[in-house]
């Protein structure tokens, strides 16, 4: 889907720009999917990869970080939603970990888990400003302790962060996924390869096959 929209609101979340746009048509989004957003600015050669953090009543919240040059009123050309998002199973206990401190990309996922009636634990070094009471916040360093509790685990971070934490965690038999935060300039259109990720099934493109991968499938660089 391609949309021309206006950035109607900007705010700081953890010192980074987040925003809100109005979308004129309903958009079906799976948590972890992304959009390419191109502004008309001549100094932005590439579209920015933006992740939805909320989707309700014609409004789409965009997770930080947004480009610092954007301001309220910036016109954006959106392409998406793109890629493969999280596949949250129906489970009772869900653990989410924001490895890079940005929790907003996980917001749609914890909302989905709560709707499913799951208990949700969020592991992060930075406590988000607005969070449902039902979500328990825990320090990231305590993530290994959750192995006997969680029935589903989702990590969100850069590829080195995800691989480092994968090597420290033991979740045998637990469904586990990771949103791998990589540059995805072509949004799956070019298969350019800059977002290549090594998996047990060979090289994959985060822009098309991800950015959410089965954590058990990811292999070291």
């Amino acid at each position: 889907m391609e949309l021309n929209v206006e950035l109607v609101e900007l705010r700081l979340e953890g010192g980074l720009l987040a925003g809100r746009i109005h979308v004129p048509v309903p958009v079906q989004i799976t948590a972890g999917q992304y959009f390419l957003a191109a502004s008309g600015r001549p100094d932005e050669a590439l579209a920015a990869v933006v992740f939805p953090a909320g989707n309700m009543d014609g409004w789409l919240d965009l997770a930080p970080p947004l480009p610092s040059a954007w301001s309220a009123g910036t016109l954006l050309h959106l392409r998406g939603p793109l890629g493969r998002g999280f596949r949250l199973p129906v489970v009772r206990r869900v653990a989410l970990a924001a490895l890079d401190g940005i929790t907003a990309r996980l917001r749609l996922l914890w909302n989905q888990a709560l709707v499913q009636g799951a208990e949700v634990a969020l592991f992060t070094r930075r406590i988000p400003a607005s969070l449902p009471d039902a979500v328990e916040v825990l320090p990231l360093e305590s993530l290994p302790d959750v192995s006997g509790w969680a029935e589903y685990l989702a990590l969100d971070g850069t590829l080195p962060q995800v691989l480092e934490w994968k090597s420290r965690l033991a979740f045998p038999g637990v469904a586990a996924e990771a949103l791998v935060n990589l540059p995805m300039p072509c949004g799956g259109m070019g298969e350019c390869g800059v977002c290549s990720v090594r998996t047990r099934r060979g090289w994959k493109h985060a822009c098309q096959d991800g950015p959410v991968f089965d954590l058990h499938e990811l292999e070291a660089l």
């Binding site: 590439l46 300039p185 298969e191 350019c192 390869g193 800059v194 290549s196 660089l221």
Partner: peptide, 30 residues
């Protein structure tokens, strides 16, 4: 896309770096 006789894997240090006026794209042409 560029095609070689044998498979090419992505460059180890693949990256996309924006700069004013453009970006540098290094992929290894996988």
């Amino acid at each position: 896309n560029p095609i070689s006789r044998k498979p090419r894997t992505p460059a180890e240090n693949r990256t996309c770096i924006p700069y004013p006026g453009g970006c540098l794209l290094h992929t290894g042409l996988p």
